[in-house]
Design a protein around this nucleic acid. Structure first.
Lengths: 207, 207
DNA sequence: TTCAGAACCGCACTGGTGGTACAGTACCTT
DNA sequence: AAGGTACTGTACCACCAGTGCGGTTCTGAA
């Protein structure tokens, strides 16, 4: 890796840690600069302003999260051939992953961005929007496959249902913070799993 | 109303509008002061610092929201004697209410507070926590009543299920912001309704 | 070996913002 | 008339995002 992008990477690492810990606006550039062992001029050489940093962080975060989901449902596919079981196993794996994070939930940058709308520029909000829509189509695809084998017990929109994955994860992270209970998100993901099970399972059965 | 608390109220009104529109930290005291037609000294007479304002806003918001929930489920009780139907009707009314808000979602102060942890002091976070726990016990009570008549089709924790109300609402508001679709929250509340229906209904039926 | 350009450093400065300090004043009640 | 409540006015401080710009170091291609 070139010298330049190494520094850029280091700035982002330092920034991400601080942002997840205490929020974007509570993280000063001076602080990032100090921890990344660089000067303010150096920072502004790599990022036009704080918005550019936010955008870079969000985009990187999305890539990592996408790769994580890919991995997770790939493993689920290895464990079962049934599309519904794949989905249920994937959610179980996700719940485990959320509980395994040491020191609790790191929080989600997407939510941070969404709730500080005016603090960010259009590009940041667009990156955020793209990420969320990406998740929607990802989960929608999986749900469609499930539906082909298992008719729904109650008619609901697949798009809305796909959004529910994000809603439960994001909402779970927010609430986990609010009550200071890192396990809350995991529990909520399992409830979503329970819903999907009831929605698609032919007979009412517990597992 | 005394002259003092009138001014205090006006400050909070002006602040709330700005905060819901663009976030807490993006709202400057100078701006509030200008719109409330008061001086900076006047502001700091009523609020020790910006944290005190945040706390007051959250506490007032919680009261309003609690009253709103009381009202909503009171109406639901008038419409049906069956505890499950009361819950389902209440959620339907909530969804309608969320879609009726002109100009889309106002956003939720609780989430804002949760995601800017370090920006606020302990008192603010405590107020936030109390609010969320209040909702938990509110919905938990309702779910317990339902469970006495309708055994669950799948065993899940009532506490977690109670939290899911808040999770779906908060998560819905976050996602609605992220994709700029005000109807998203409403749709998600209806999905929660669908889940509860499947979870408690004796036979699988649509309604 | 040279040399252009990328990747920084150093430093001074601006404007906005949260917050303090404190003296003075209008108003209202007793 | 007195005293508290509810402010106003002014001056000030520290911190932070961001700008400007000249200077320096490193690196790879010619």
């Amino acid at each position: 890796m070139a010298r330049g992008s190494q520094t850029r990477q280091r700035i982002m690492d330092v920034a991400q840690e601080a942002v997840l810990d205490k929020g974007f606006d509570a993280t000063s550039i001076d602080e990032i600069v100090a921890n990344a062992e660089i000067t303010k001029s150096g920072f502004f050489y790599h990022f036009r302003d704080k918005n550019a940093l936010a955008r870079a962080l969000i985009e990187r975060h999305i890539e990592i999260e996408d790769a994580l989901f890919d991995d997770l449902f790939e493993r689920a596919r290895e464990l079962s051939d049934d599309p519904l079981q794949q989905l249920l196993i994937g959610l179980k794996l996700l719940a485990e992953l959320l509980s395994d994070i040491p020191g609790g939930h790191p929080g989600c940058i997407v939510a941070t961005a969404a709730y500080q709308d005016r603090l960010f520029d259009n590009e940041v909000r667009e990156a955020n929007r793209r990420a969320v829509l990406g998740w929607r189509s990802r989960f929608r695809d999986m749900l469609e496959t499930v539906q082909q084998t298992y008719p729904m017990n109650e008619q609901v929109s697949l798009d809305h249902l796909a959004d529910m994955f994000s809603v439960v994860i994001e909402g779970g992270l927010v609430m986990a913070r609010a009550v200071n209970d890192p396990r809350l998100t995991e529990q909520q993901v399992l409830l979503l799993r329970s819903y999907l099970n009831l929605l698609f399972s032919p007979a009412s059965r517990s597992n």
